[in-house]
Write a protein that binds this DNA or RNA. Sequence first.
DNA 1: TAAGTTACGTAACGATGTTACGGCATAATG
DNA 2: CATTATGCCGTAACATCGTTACGTAACTTA
Lengths: 214, 214
Amino acid sequence: MSPKTADPAVRARLIESAARVLAEEGPNSLTARRLAAEAGTSTTAVYTFFGGMDQVWHAVRREGFARLATHLDATPDLADPVANLVAGGAAYLANGMANPNLYRAMFDRHDVPDIGNDTFGRLVGAVRRCVDAGRFHRVEPLRSLGWAVQSWTMRHGMVSLAIAELMPAEHVPLHFADMSRCLFIGYGDDPEAAERSVDLAMREWRPVDPAGAS
Amino acid sequence: MSPKTADPAVRARLIESAARVLAEEGPNSLTARRLAAEAGTSTTAVYTFFGGMDQVWHAVRREGFARLATHLDATPDLADPVANLVAGGAAYLANGMANPNLYRAMFDRHDVPDIGNDTFGRLVGAVRRCVDAGRFHRVEPLRSLGWAVQSWTMRHGMVSLAIAELMPAEHVPLHFADMSRCLFIGYGDDPEAAERSVDLAMREWRPVDPAGAS
DNA sequence: TAAGTTACGTAACGATGTTACGGCATAATG
DNA sequence: CATTATGCCGTAACATCGTTACGTAACTTA
């Protein structure tokens, strides 16, 4: 029923090449022929594995979210849920700014919800841990979900403005800490504790494996 | 020196058509031939007026920022600088969510700074009026500029997540008011006044001329 | 071993951005 | 007003894009 099974390694090389070409040369260089040449095959293989360039872009976006998840998982546990939330944001920013083309592609089309759910789930968990620890107000669950959305709003807006060069890259940590302070103070009852958490995260967090961030 | 001068009306129609096709049918439908047909001319005209599709996209982005500026100017004066800042943000959100394809295009490439300076200047002015009125901390000018950048971060992040359907459109006003409260409380000395300003803006602000927002 | 099924290289098709060429309308000049 | 020259823009071509028809080779299955 399945003679001459398709080689999964070719598919992996195609995605890998797609992400690399996109990152290094921009979206205009990501063509079917270029992709086939990079993977040492022909354009037909692109269609047997993906069905079309739309699905290639979809796969590239999935890959982008997967790499982001890897970086989020690699952040050390600071034993302070609010600091962990801030550290996750810092990792998010570092990942996005290290890969502007890939990051832009991740939000370029309308299929983000399907492939971004896992990333968002991580963020929801981080916020919930803040609520459970009494660091954020204990409100209705929908409102708590909203805080995760608002955190993502801040992260995404900051990466986008930074890679569009509307915000100087060297100011990003300052702005991120500043906005995090304002938001997380507002989410909880203890302004000083929130401020300490932000300072702790900005002091302790270090970008993990920047080479693999591409 | 300039026989058979180019008709500026044709250029205006090209930009108008480009913005409309982009808004109604998406970026894939914005082709040179389609554009020429819409404006009743041939593809050569596109090159005499713009030089290439890249410059067409640049002009479309300029048009997008120009329309945004029109909407920002149309917001009523609430005689409260912080409320005006919030109202400007609401207008920004309404404009972006009414024109998702145009908004996406505005931040898609690397030429945003050139054409977004005027929009950013407006935001800086609104923040400065808050500082001058004593509603925000009187800090060094660079920090005050940073508050404008942070406001833009919030606005842009929110529009982007909303048009990517990562944030339900009906939750946008709630999240915007919530984040504005947290940020602007943190920027000033009087939390109650900030809260009143946000409530005032969210109560008094109305979208202006939604038909022309396209 | 034989047959059947599937991957994938070759080469084509339509559509894209871009450009060479030529006609012709219009400004500049006497 | 006549002449000239300048440059807009319609036609048609070119390279390259995504996509697909077709054929061959390779692998599974019986």
